[in-house]
Amino acid sequence: MPTLAITHTVDARGLSCPMPIVKTAQACRVVPAGSVVELLATDPGSTKDVGAWCRATGNELVEQTIDGGVHRFVIRRK
């Protein structure tokens, strides 16, 4: 799979609910449509919340991985 060009990274490591979502939403407001946003979070609840946020807002969750307690989400802005 080709690596997507990340437009913007949201570093929400160490932040609890709802800040990973709030910061992602804020980032998606400023980047142009179609760009790829990466979210890094340590909140275990983000595994479910990011999916729910993507479904509600129509953004695409391209990738979801975990590495050493850090969840990484790759989101394509609609």
Binding site: C17, P18, I21, V22, T24, A25, Q26, A52, W53, A56, T57
Partner: peptide, 12 residues
């Protein structure tokens, strides 16, 4: 405020 900010973040 958690619910309000999350609501707005979700486009509600």
């Amino acid at each position: 405020l958690i619910l309000a900010s999350t609501g707005a973040a979700m486009g509600v």
